[in-house]
């Protein structure tokens, strides 16, 4: 006992007090460095970003790819965002989320969706945004051209045999619904923009049968902002053309024009600003579009 006491006093150390101090010190040290004064975050990698910031990063990668078409570079950049997943699925998810969140209001939003889709679809990715905003065919801006009245049809010469006049048709101005054609019966025949200060931001839809005659009574649906839509019918302005209908766009938005169940390819048009010459003056207005559909010939 004496010798044991002698050892303890000679070292002057209380081991349990030392251990307690060590534990307390360690705890205080970690609380201080993890909670009170943590390391300033400076060298974060893309995979450590929040979901929103990761989405921003993926969008930037897609837009960059749309410009440089360097798929290897895009894949490398995406791997930095999501090292443990199929990067194309990640891009598809981002596109899908943006559509679900309604980030499809402006032209820029639509271009983002298209850029994302152009990145993931050729690589086998797939998601809920597939094909929602197809890239429109190249559009040439042309100055407004005057619309000529339709060529009058020659009246057949009077027959020698008198014909019994039939009953006078009534309600000539009413829209006569045509028999419903089969799905995919119409194809996009013309998609062309024009710039006319007198008709700013108008989609002029014309529906023709296989012979080129206007078809009234066809429903036309225009969708925008992802979930807003309007349906109207051709033939309500017979003074224009039998198969004519129009729709006014708001500047800066994108619109998809379709004939429900009748076409497989629905074009998307953008209400961009455009400049038209009026006399010596240049006027800024909103781009309008001719969108014609024609029945497929059997």
């Amino acid at each position: 006992m004496t010798s044991s006491k002698h050892v303890r006093s000679s070292r002057g150390v209380s081991w349990w007090a030392l251990a307690l101090g060590l534990a307390l010190g360690l705890a205080v040290g970690l609380v201080y460095t993890w909670e009170i004064d943590p390391v300033i975050e400076r060298n974060t990698a893309p995979w450590q970003l929040s979901a929103a910031a990761r989405e921003d990063y993926v969008v930037a990668v897609a837009l960059s790819y749309a410009q440089n078409q360097d798929i290897l570079l895009a894949a490398d950049r995406l791997r930095a965002v999501s090292p443990n997943r199929n990067v194309w699925d990640v891009v598809a998810e981002v596109a899908c989320n943006r559509v679900k969140q309604g980030k499809t209001v402006t032209n820029s939003d639509i271009r983002v969706i298209r850029a994302l889709e152009q990145l993931y679809r050729p690589q086998g990715g797939s998601g809920c945004a597939d094909g929602l905003y197809p890239t429109p065919e190249p559009i040439t801006i042309v100055p407004a051209t005057p619309t000529f009245p339709p060529t009058p049809t020659l009246t057949p010469p009077p027959s020698k045999t008198p014909t019994v006049p039939g009953p006078t048709p009534t309600g000539a101005m009413a829209v006569v619904p045509t028999s419903t054609p089969a799905s995919g019966a119409f194809a996009l025949a013309r998609l062309q923009s024009f710039c006319d200060p007198d008709r700013p931001g108008v989609i002029e839809v014309r529906i023709y049968d296989a012979r080129g005659n206007g078809v009234p009574g066809i429903p036309v649906t225009v969708t925008w902002s992802g979930n807003e839509s309007d349906t109207f019918f051709t033939g309500l302005k017979p003074e224009r053309e039998a198969g004519y209908a129009d729709f006014s766009m708001e500047a800066g938005r994108s619109y998809t024009v379709t004939l429900p169940g009748l076409v497989s390819n629905a074009p998307t048009v953008e209400a961009d600003s455009c400049q038209a010459s009026v006399g010596d003056e240049v006027v800024t207005t909103v781009t309008s579009y001719y969108v014609n559909f024609q029945a497929r010939s059997n």
Partner: peptide
């Protein structure tokens, strides 16, 4: 004395670990 020495060593170790090998 032992408690203070332990505290000092623990604090130093904790700060070293929290800012060094195991940061937030």
């Amino acid at each position: 004395g032992s408690l203070l020495v332990g505290l000092l060593i623990g604090l130093s170790t904790g700060v070293f670990l929290g800012w060094g090998p195991f940061p937030v």
